[in-house]
């Protein structure tokens, strides 16, 4: 593509290094991580500071620490996920935990075992940390009430996906220096997206201006109470923004008549060469993955220098290591 360069294969040198953040005695105040909504700005920065150190750790030859040695981490996934699950798995292993992946397929749910039954069974296996993804909003909250261990929400329905928001924040903070004062546009299916919800809450907490862009059928009806400005015209929405967060468009959305077709969606809400020009020249493009090339994002933009999509994946492991360590502060020692 003319005028655009391929992203360098080498990892980008971070703008801010660990030393830039004075080591504080950060104490994470909760037993669980169920959502961003319960976190303060200080909690978020504390977790991001911890994650900075893990970025360094993860770039070493010996990536292993023994913070969680002897601990058991269970990844309980009721929805298929490759990225989030492997990211948590690596994070747990790098901290020395024993990691068990449990993918609960539709079939076992159809056998009638309820979420609580599953929780009770797992509880008897004495895990220390449970990472859960479930198709119903509030499932992580429900589990946390019934389990003796720490619970991390890895996505519950259309509610929250806190580690995704944290890794996005870490990526932005390293690229832009700070989050306060930035204008961030989140584009796509806001209504059904837990990633959007967690990001909106986090970015507001840290003082960014948040815009959401999408057709009205995919936007919440009451955007203003969420602290966001809603746009149905992508160009106006992208005008002068520092960060563009694209969301994945689920194929089911066509079936349920929320949008007519992927090609019409791409025409109006796909990030392409023309639309991306409305954002600031130094803006960055993010996507939680996996990307639908040609549906929500033009293929070459995904690979352009502005794109930090692969960096997000790297930050994902660091953030999850930080969260696991933060929760480990509260695990019983005897």
């Amino acid at each position: 593509m003319p005028g655009l360069q391929r992203a360098p294969q080498k990892t980008i040198t971070p703008v801010l290094m660990t030393n830039a953040f004075p080591k504080t005695s950060f104490l994470y105040p909760y037993r669980h991580l169920l959502g961003i909504a319960s976190l303060s700005a200080a909690d978020i920065h504390g977790l991001l500071d911890l994650a900075e150190a893990e970025v360094i750790q993860s770039r070493q030859v010996d990536k292993k620490k023994d913070t969680l040695r002897g601990r058991t981490l269970i990844n309980l996934f009721f929805e298929p996920s490759t990225r989030t699950q492997s990211s948590f798995e690596l994070a747990g292993k790098r901290l020395g935990a024993d990691v068990l992946n449990m993918a609960i397929g539709k079939s076992s749910m159809e056998k009638g075992e309820t979420l609580i039954d599953t929780a009770m069974t797992l509880n008897a296996m004495r895990p220390d940390i449970l990472v859960v993804r479930h198709h119903a909003a509030g499932a992580a909250e429900l589990l946390s009430q019934k389990m003796d261990c720490a619970v991390i929400n890895a996505g519950d329905g259309a509610h929250e996906h806190p580690t995704q928001a944290l890794l996005d924040a870490l990526t932005v903070r390293r690229r832009k220096g700070a989050i306060a004062g930035l204008t961030v546009a989140i584009c796509g299916d806001i209504l059904h997206s837990r990633v959007a919800r967690s990001n909106i809450i986090l970015l507001n907490a840290l003082g960014a201006k948040v815009r959401v862009i999408g057709p009205s059928t995919l936007l919440p009806r009451n955007s203003s109470t969420m602290g966001v400005e809603a746009f149905t015209d992508m160009r106006r929405g992208l005008d002068g923004v520092d960060v563009i967060m694209m969301l994945r468009l689920q194929r089911e959305r066509m079936v349920s008549a929320l949008i007519p077709s992927t090609r019409e969606y791409f025409r109006f809400f796909g990030l392409d060469e023309e639309k991306v020009k409305w954002a600031k020249p130094d803006s960055i493009v993010m996507h939680p993955g996996p990307i639908n090339r040609g549906v929500e994002i033009d293929s070459w933009i995904a690979d352009d220098v502005r794109s930090v999509i692969r960096e997000q994946v790297e930050m994902g492991i660091a953030v999850r290591m930080a969260v696991l360590q933060a929760l480990a502060q509260h695990l019983p020692n005897d």
Binding site: A37, A137, G157, A158, H159, R221, M226
Partner: peptide
Amino acid sequence: NDGEIATRLGLP
């Protein structure tokens, strides 16, 4: 109810 609380909780 379709309102602010539903939006926050991610419930239809």
